[in-house]
Design a protein around this nucleic acid. Structure first.
Lengths: 339, 339
DNA sequence: GAGCGGTTGTGAACCGTTTCAACGGTTATA
DNA sequence: TATAACCGTTGAAACGGTTCACAACCGCTC
């Protein structure tokens, strides 16, 4: 069932059928409707592989994220999907799961697919691979990560500022022994949020020791629970009175870990997360968190990519940076008097 | 940069290069290594569109879900991805968002892509469309939905049983005025869970009026909050003492709605959700819920599809049905004495 | 009725792979 | 020595679209 069958059935040439499909305006109305009738009678569905083969690039694009089960990324994905769906594009969804091998395998696959472009939250700053991709004609937009190079588009949120906001809030509430839970430190998001926190400490003229790092192997609820246990393992007198987590999944895990040991939040330990996923507000103790414009992140990245795809000459690479916003809820409301 | 360039560079014919790529065993070791060297020197990446065009079908498959932002579906997706990733397949991820038009548009797109198969949670029992797809050679596996036809594979969980388990639990705890929150009723999951609940009522020799339906326009947190308001709008004397929600997102919404109006859960109103997403345990009041094997659902569906793709002759269509399990947590622990 | 511009439609080349009949060369068999 | 069997390789024909130079036809005008 090909364009050729349609042509026969309608009594026109293949070129005309192709024109009806792609530039319907240039074909005479009567011919056009005859062809359309043939198409629906035969139930013809164009083969995108053939189109792609001829045109050079296809109608799909790749989205590579760090963790599908993190609602932050699904919200981003939804934003991407909104935009691409409207443009009739398909998204190949890839979950690197923080594993460089999986990431690399997926990039290979996307390259074989000759996708128009790739939206990616890279695991580390392996720009070499991404730049190589770009040089081969695959558009690349960094997602939730600032591009260190001016020749790649990127859409991100100012994670340092986010970290600073969270930490300033805790400092203002009187906390002087604070735990930072996050990791692996290889992730730029984790590093930046930590750096921002340190900046707030410096701004408040406090000693760097005020913030103590608890590294985690991943950014999951389970990792958060483990971190809580480690925090509670410290002697009460030097134990942190507040915890700032690199994301909400960790924070929910910490919350669970603390609650199980009958440690009250925020009375005994205050807690701030990051991302403000929908579930943060519905948590056992509603979670203070740093909100990011998740869907807009995805929409913007996809728009940038489509722009570049459609008019590469006009397109200027840009680094879009959104501002995060602190949302204070119950988990950090308790004000500490004294040290 | 094509197979032809590689052939020239290695001094062999295109056929040989193709053989190195697809049946390396039939080509002589020395030739093979010469070709492989040429491939890596030139940085050649095969064009999957061309392969697909020639072979007839590609290396991708489609996954169509009802709601990306529901962690239930992302967990299912993860299961799918695990399995397909291991087989070197790509997943085109589609979110129908409960909109039949979006679903239909995505099916068109997948058909144009000539995907190997489609894993789908259909919105309604629009099997006509799916059967047509199947007849055109696209493998179809129903996901989280039992196939009414024996000629389609399906992987599902016994939703009636799940509804029955939840309701029996509430009845045993003494509840005699219970609200069912869910919708739209067009969704089979919602209907089945409701039917199961009715079955439990019949089994306990209670009047059908014990269960009162509160329909929602969708299965989201926001819809749950609205439903809570409607429940609280009833006079205290006839108001439900327990709520069973068609999924956990609704339950979290109901929980928020109740809590805002200072109604205590479970003391004033008990609550049971469905799916047992990770966030259920981390909710303000840990949520009782009906657990489904989410990842296994995805893995099994993908496995079934791959099996059929690889050996269509051996393959027998099957309806896999998992059993759900009630997980009781705090939100339904309060035992009601009297009516 | 030749010449002209404009509109429609044609048909073949091409995209990059797979596949398969055919081929030359070597070795085993009669 | 002739023949068969086998092995590794070749080259061309698909696959199903898009694109473009060109042809056919139309109504006009001179």
């Amino acid at each position: 069932m090909s364009i050729r069958d349609v042509a026969n059935h309608a009594g026109v040439s293949v070129g005309t059928v192709s024109n009806v499909l792609n530039r319907p305006d240039i074909v005479a109305p009567t011919t056009r409707s005859r062809v359309l009738a043939a198409i629906s009678e035969l139930g013809f569905v164009p083969n995108d592989a053939a189109r792609q083969l001829r045109r050079g690039r296809g109608r799909t694009l790749g989205l590579v994220v760090l963790d599908v089960s993190n609602p932050f990324f699904t919200d981003v994905a939804k934003g991407v999907e909104d935009t691409t769906g409207a443009a009739g594009m398909a998204v190949i969804f890839c979950n690197s799961d923080g594993d460089p091998n999986k990431e690399s395998a997926y990039l290979d696959l996307l390259e074989e697919q000759r996708v128009q472009g790739v939206l990616i939250t890279p695991i580390d700053d392996a720009n070499t691979r991404l730049v190589r991709l770009r040089d081969r004609g695959v558009l690349v937009v960094l997602l939730d990560r600032r591009s260190p190079r001016p020749d790649l588009c990127s859409v991100s949120v100012d994670d340092r500022l986010g970290g600073e906001l969270a930490m300033r809030h805790l400092i203002e509430n009187g906390h002087r022994r604070i735990a930072f839970v996050g990791g692996p430190h290889r992730l730029e998001q984790v590093r930046d949020r930590h750096d921002g926190a340190m900046r707030a400490i410096a701004a408040a003229d406090l000693a760097p020791e005020v913030l103590r790092r608890f590294d985690t192997p991943g950014t999951t609820v389970a990792a958060g629970r483990d971190a809580a246990a480690r925090i509670l393992g410290m002697p009460r007198s030097t134990r942190a009175t507040a915890v700032f987590c690199a994301n909400d999944l960790l924070a929910l895990g910490v919350l669970q870990g603390l609650t199980r040991q009958r440690v009250r939040v925020p009375d005994d330990i205050a807690l701030v997360g990051y991302d403000d996923i929908d579930f943060a507000a519905a948590a056992a103790v509603p979670l203070s968190s740093v909100r990011q414009p998740r869907q807009r992140l995805g929409q913007t990245a996809a728009t940038l990519l489509l722009e570049e795809a459609n008019s590469p000459d006009i397109h200027r690479h840009q680094q879009v940076i959104f501002e995060p916003e602190l949302v204070v809820r119950e988990s950090s409301q308790f004000v500490r008097s004294g040290g």
